[in-house]
Simulated scan of single mutants.
Amino acid sequence: MHEIVTISIGECGINIGAQFWRDLCIQSDLSASGHSLDPIFSPPFHLFEEQLSSRFVPRTILLDSQPSALDNIRSTDLGFLFPPNAFISGNDGTGSAFGVGCYDLDLIQEPLQNQIRVQAEKCNQTPNFNIFHSLGGGTGSGTTSFVLMHLSDEYQTSVFNCSVLPEPDACVVSPYNCILGFNYLIQCSNAVQCIDNGNLMGQIKGVREINQYISSQLIDMFKTEKQWIPKYDKNAEYDQRHFYHSEAMWKGENVTSCPFSDTGAKVIHEIEFGSTTLYNSAEVARSIQQQLDRFDLMYKRRAYVYGHSRCMDECEYVEASERVHELLEIYENNGKNTLTTD
Rank of each mutant, 00 (worst) to 15 (best):
T276Q: 05
T76M: 10
L47W: 02
K226L: 11
D169T: 15
T76F: 08
D239T: 14
Q51C: 14
K336S: 08
P175A: 07
V173G: 03
L81Y: 00
Y213P: 05
G79W: 02
H2M: 11
P259S: 06
C311Q: 08
V267C: 05
I330D: 13
D169M: 12
L112Y: 02
S163M: 09
A69Y: 01
S134T: 04
E167P: 07
D220P: 06
I219C: 04
Q66I: 08
H2K: 07
Q27M: 07
P127R: 03
K234W: 09
E121C: 12
Y299F: 15
K234G: 11
R22I: 10
E319V: 12
K234N: 13
V318S: 14
R208S: 08
R241P: 09
I16E: 00
D342C: 12
R310I: 15
N183R: 07
V207L: 13
H245F: 10
R74A: 07
I40E: 14
T76R: 07
A303F: 07
L135G: 04
G137M: 00
A320T: 05
F98Q: 05
V284N: 03
L148I: 05
T340C: 12
S216L: 08
T338C: 10
I195Y: 01
K223D: 08
R302S: 14
S31F: 03
P230C: 04
Y155K: 02
D239R: 08
N130K: 05
A191Q: 02
T263P: 04
S174Y: 02
L165I: 09
Q187T: 13
P175T: 04
P166A: 10
L292S: 02
K122E: 08
L62P: 02
N333T: 09
A191S: 07
S189E: 04
H133C: 11
S28T: 05
C171G: 13
Y304M: 15
Q125Y: 06
Q289T: 13
Q290N: 11
G90Q: 03
I204C: 05
S134A: 13
V255E: 13
D239M: 10
E283T: 07
F182Y: 14
V147T: 05
I268F: 00
S89N: 15
S174L: 09
S141L: 06
S65V: 06
